[in-house]
């Protein structure tokens, strides 16, 4: 019995409760296990306190920073993080990428976040209206709508009017998400009636249907075409038909780490931040 380690011994202890005192070895194991659990709980309970940064130095950009960012920002913000962490090595940046409205409702439900970067003003206003912002939002970038087609544009789609073809498998972002809202505004302004096959839950899901070859076309952001890295081509929508998305960013009122949040927002607005955004297909607002 003494030679049997681990789970077998533990299992045996449970089934021979009455004889526990006969075996000092299992008793020791049980105490060790409880001590281990206590340490784990202690470490877990210390986690959030550490995440707020070093309480001794309120100006230090350190600890954990949680950024809620629109799904369309995924690749650009991943590179922004690398540059930001290079400049502030004590910070850990975690991103939650999703549709802006999902993020806004998560914030409204009390999700812990320091910074909110939305793909439209509506969702930022919703958070602002509920008193969720620490200050005024700043518009930090813009994104032009583009028609996503399969590589090489095999169907020769030239513009929004070509999307009216009922034979075309067109997938749009749902109107509940900003990209879908802008796409429907652009289509309406151009007088184009479409019969979409699916209204996807976010712009990346819509693009992926084109990349997988399941859809012939979609309307996405210019930045998504850059991110697709050749798996989809973009057909430009002329400026007069375009409804560009403008992206506001703000520090949240309940930010666990406001110092780092301010620093991150400043970095996004800085020249180096803007250069990174431009390299991912974003335009200056």
């Amino acid at each position: 019995m003494n030679g049997v380690p681990g789970p077998v011994g533990a299992l045996d202890r449970r089934s021979s409760r009455g004889r526990r005192s006969d075996d000092p070895g299992t008793g020791r194991r049980a105490r060790g296990w409880r001590a281990g659990l206590a340490v784990a709980l202690l470490v877990a309970s210390c986690g959030p306190a550490d995440a707020g940064g070093d309480p001794g130095d309120p100006d230090a950009v350190a600890g954990e920073l949680i950024v809620f960012a629109a799904a369309s920002l995924t690749d650009a913000f991943d590179e922004l993080r690398a540059a930001f962490v290079d400049a502030n090595p004590d910070i850990e940046v975690a991103f939650n990428y999703a549709g802006s409205q999902t993020l806004a409702s998560q914030i409204a439900e009390g999700a812990p976040a320091d910074v909110f970067a939305a793909a439209n003003a509506t969702q930022m206003d919703a958070v602002s209206g509920a008193g969720g912002l620490a200050g005024d939002p700043a518009t930090f970038t813009a994104n032009l709508l583009t028609i996503a087609v399969e590589p090489g544009n095999p169907l020769g789609i030239g513009g929004l009017t070509d999307l009216a073809d009922p034979e075309l498998v067109l997938v749009l972002p749902a109107e509940e998400v900003p990209a879908g809202q802008y796409a429907s505004e652009a289509l309406a302004a151009a007088g184009v009636e479409v019969t979409p096959s699916s209204l996807e839950r976010d712009v990346r899901a819509a693009l992926s249907k084109v990349e997988l070859g399941e859809a012939d076309a979609s309307v996405v952001y210019a930045s998504d075409i850059v991110a697709s890295d050749g798996r989809a081509d973009g057909v430009e929508i002329p400026v007069e038909q375009n409804v560009p998305a403008t992206y506001p960013i703000a520090v949240l009122a309940d930010a666990p780490n406001p110092t780092a949040a301010e620093a991150f927002v400043a970095f996004v607005l800085s020249d180096s931040g803007q250069r990174i955004l431009a390299s991912y297909g974003f335009t200056t607002p």
Partner: peptide, 12 residues
């Protein structure tokens, strides 16, 4: 469903 059939009110 959302991956394979997409999302279109009334159809999927």
């Amino acid at each position: 469903t959302i991956t394979f059939a997409g999302n279109l009110p009334g159809r999927t």
